[in-house]
């Protein structure tokens, strides 16, 4: 009986103690680099599993005009405030050029008119923010794959990096500049477009004028706005925080299919 009693006390005490430890210890665990790496291993599993399920070309659902959200929330930067961007916006982006360089065969620049002259794709899709909300909008733009066909890719190119005009966080070294990256599977996906129109109108500044990315099988933070330059790289390790994107450098997953 007494032996039992101590064992019982030990177990109950242990259980209560462990749960208290879990609660207060979580913040400590959360800040531990090894723990963070173990937790991050799930991201790789998610990417592999989703790519296996999707195959290359599974399409995100396309909706009808009647499904479009009555209001589409503006998120992230509302209006980039650099002198360069303000000047471009005042000139209705006629002086804006999209540069494509890095590991391409033929680096090129495109004006907005050049892009609009290329065959366009229009899609009504659901935009899913990492915070949890969704909005449905109609996007028109050039498939990224068509531009990459024009520039050609060097054999070592693995990622498409989108450099943006907005600075979401003011920093001395410029690391608050927005950027994103996707791999070539997503880059040549038929629904991956560089959109210059939303709901039938030229992109507003709030939604990323003059050009934003739509990569429809991933979350909102991958849909980079205010694109200025597209760079093909073999690795994004040397860029800013080295994680392949503004939010990625701040702890979010590079693969945002979940």
């Amino acid at each position: 009986m007494s032996k039992l009693f101590t064992r019982r006390r030990f177990l109950i005490g242990g259980t209560l103690g462990a749960s208290a430890l879990t609660l207060s210890g979580c913040d400590l665990l959360d800040q531990n680099a090894d723990v963070a790496n173990v937790l991050r291993s799930a991201e790789h599993l998610t990417l592999k599993a989703q790519r296996l399920l999707q195959g290359r070309d599974a399409l995100a659902r396309e909706f009808d005009e009647k499904d479009i959200s009555p209001s589409f929330r503006v998120n992230g930067t509302i209006a980039p405030d650099s002198d360069e961007y303000v000047e471009l916006a005042e000139g209705n982006f006629s002086a804006w050029r999209l540069k494509i360089d890095g590991l391409v065969e033929r680096p090129r620049e495109f004006s907005l008119a050049d892009l609009k002259a290329l065959p366009a794709r229009t899609q009504i899709t659901r935009h899913d923010c990492v915070e949890g909300w969704s909005a449905i909008g109609k996007w028109t733009g050039v498939p990224l794959a068509s531009l990459l066909r024009l520039t050609g890719l060097k054999a070592t190119a693995r990622y498409v990096v989108l450099h943006c005009a907005d600075e979401l966080e003011k920093t001395l070294d410029g690391s608050g500049r927005y950027y994103e990256s996707i791999d070539l599977i997503d880059a040549v996906h038929p629904q991956t477009i560089l959109a210059y129109q939303m709901n039938g109108q030229d992109l507003s500044v709030g939604h990323g004028a003059p050009l934003r990315l739509r990569v429809e099988r991933q979350l909102g933070y991958k849909q980079a706005k205010y694109i200025m330059r597209i760079e093909l790289v073999d690795s994004f390790a040397g860029l800013w925080g080295g994680n392949g994107g503004y939010w990625e450098d701040r702890g979010y997953e590079w693969y945002a299919g979940i």
């Binding site: 998610t46 989703q50 399920l53 999707q54 195959g55 599974a58 399409l59 995100a60 659902r61 659901r126 899913d128 949890g132 429809e216 099988r217 991933q218 979350l219 299919g257 979940i258």
Partner: peptide, 13 residues
């Protein structure tokens, strides 16, 4: 809730 899974298994939505 995963946009990636929704593309693969649209029936879920």
């Amino acid at each position: 809730m995963s946009p990636g899974v929704d593309a693969a298994l649209p029936a879920l939505v």
